[in-house]
Design a protein around this nucleic acid. Structure first.
Lengths: 343, 343
DNA sequence: CTGTTTCATGGGAGCGGTCCCTAAAATTGG
DNA sequence: CCAATTTTAGGGACCGCTCCCATGAAACAG
């Protein structure tokens, strides 16, 4: 049997299959897309030949013809901490179940990069996008574009308050409240808080949880003990040392997240103080590391997999529906205090 | 001014721009692709209108027309350990510099999934692919397809010996040798080795390095102390307990990688033994966690960023060249022993 | 036995670009 | 000032596929 195939680029097209079988490309297309109205014999012949010639469909052509990229985008501030990889992994699983690819971009906590990444997503015609903003993001025009163009968007973790779209967050307030109350109930009197940039809602909510817990137990909030920083590694040492050297130093530190808490512990130890005897430390997120460090970190666990799955589901809910039917739920997932030896 | 634009899907095309300016879409295309032969005035008019109407190029159409996806694929066994995210981040940086997108897929250490992922990459017509195989991968047909189709492929970390393509690895043998010699020089006599699946070259090389170090120092290799396991979390406990309970137990354990070493330490501690006093432990890779655990882990550091950058560069070298000019270098990067308190 | 459905297939217009080929306009040189 | 050359712009095939429409054959009902 002589194949008439002309394999430019080593690639076989439906046209090659059609010519070989002396049928039209429409029929081949019908077989390949699972369209019902094809004679079983024809279907078999096409499928057999496709298999035999190792036909590989061209998703790019399909994307162009169907006007959907079958791709969703993820825009996150960074990929290296253990929180995000877990969420990504969960999103990817859901996406693959739906037959979607995932384009991941990290903004490196830079607003500029986030804007660029959003453009790349647009260029690539993603069918939807899941976003967690950088600490610098104050203007949201680059994200509102998605709304304007009718591309579904879902936020998680670090959300944008001024956009009415689906969001997945955890009960940061409750989580922080519980963590701080735990410190109070274990006898701590002067509890400091290493907070994040006030631009982020999570910073504000966790701070409010902290303040509420103090208030409930009639402990006056001391502004000296509340430090808001920008997540830059170098500055943690400065702030922790500052706290330690206060004339009335704290006996506990509640950190905005686990990486901060872990660094805090290292610095306290470097100063010759003990954790938790001299200063207790509590973090937020239950990163993979937190159970392994010495002392193991008390922290507020987030359901990372559930966050990813929920975000993906909210996105696909929108992708599948007409935009007029979109809902904008805000899913608030529960956190869980994990008490370990650092407190 | 009345715009004639017909914005199906809220998207503006070059045709819309052309009609609006009363010129041909060829000219618009020329402007947008930076082709030189365009009158400066025309160029400005096009650019201005594009800006004004917020024209967004359609990468999918471009990909189809130019026959390149401007996307590279990464196939890795998992994304959650700290080794891979660092490599990925480095690859992504390089890719973005070249104007390429990155499609990441994790095989979850499953051969089946790896095969599926390879197909997805092919479907999406990636211009090249960077691969680290699963522990199960013994057949490489799904990867040889890339070669056959002329799609550049680069391996890193876990490479395929039977394929002659560029690879990026570290000097596993030397690294293991140095780690074990370090244990010997610090007075350890019975050094066990928790090795990986023998299907992986890294397992074999690290094992050989281990054996060579013993030999050099005239320590007979005891088969009882060499355990090969499949990276499954559950089994580490069994093997470590087994080692501890030998009538002649080891005084040191060299683990194939850091996660294993970290788990090993936890289990030793659970057994009421001390690290390093009773048993020293050494790992491989210098994961982010390793410095933070108690005791901090002695380990063989890998240049993760350099691995990613090198792999990406080798890939782009091939992508840019005609396949007849492809070279197949194997870059062997240096490891570095980081001595901490676990040994 | 004929009119109406249903089924199987072919034809062809997109999808949104690129890029080659050609033609007209502008520039240059002798 | 005209031929030769270079710029600038347009036309249209093509990338590989989908999907609507048309057509003819087969199946069915009256």
């Amino acid at each position: 049997m002589i194949y008439l195939i002309c394999m430019k680029n080593h690639q076989i097209t439906i046209f090659d299959l059609a010519r070989e079988l002396n049928i039209s490309k429409s029929t081949v297309s019908r077989v390949l897309t699972g369209h019902p109205n094809v004679h079983p014999d024809t279907r078999k012949r096409v499928l057999d030949l496709a298999e035999k010639l190792d036909y590989q469909r061209n998703m790019i052509a399909i994307q162009l013809a169907t006007q959907q990229s079958k791709t969703i985008g993820i825009i996150i501030p960074e990929i290296l901490s253990s929180y995000f990889p877990y969420v990504i992994a969960a999103i990817q699983e859901e996406a693959h179940k739906e037959g979607y690819n995932v384009l991941i971009s990290q903004s490196n906590e830079s607003y500029e990069t986030e804007v660029t990444n959003a453009k790349v997503m647009l260029d690539n015609r993603v069918d939807g996008v899941i976003v967690s903003i950088t600490k610098e993001t104050l203007n949201f025009d680059h994200l509102k574009v998605f709304q304007k163009k009718g591309i579904p968007i879902v936020f998680f973790n670090r959300v944008c308050n001024e956009m009415v779209v689906p969001k997945v967050i955890v009960d940061d307030y409750e989580g922080a409240f519980g963590a701080v109350e735990h410190l109070i109930l274990s006898g701590r009197k002067r509890i400091a808080h290493l907070s994040g940039p006030s631009s982020l809602a999570i910073s504000v909510k966790r701070l409010n949880g902290y303040l509420a817990a103090l208030k409930k137990h009639n402990i006056p909030a001391d502004p000296e003990l509340i430090i808001s920083y920008d997540f830059s590694k170098e500055k943690i040492a400065i702030y922790v040392n500052h706290l330690i050297n206060l004339k009335n130093p704290p006996d506990a530190i509640f950190a905005i997240n686990d990486p901060t808490a872990i660094d805090t512990i290292q610095i306290i130890k470097k100063n010759g103080l003990r954790v938790p005897e001299d200063i207790a430390v509590v973090g937020f997120s239950d990163d993979y590391v937190s159970a392994l460090i010495e002392p193991p970190l008390t922290t507020v666990a987030q359901p990372v997999r559930e966050i990813g799955i929920t975000a993906a589901q909210l996105l696909f809910d929108q992708i599948k529906k007409d935009s007029s039917q979109w809902k904008t739920p805000v899913k608030i997932l529960k956190t869980k205090l994990i008490v370990r030896k650092s407190s």
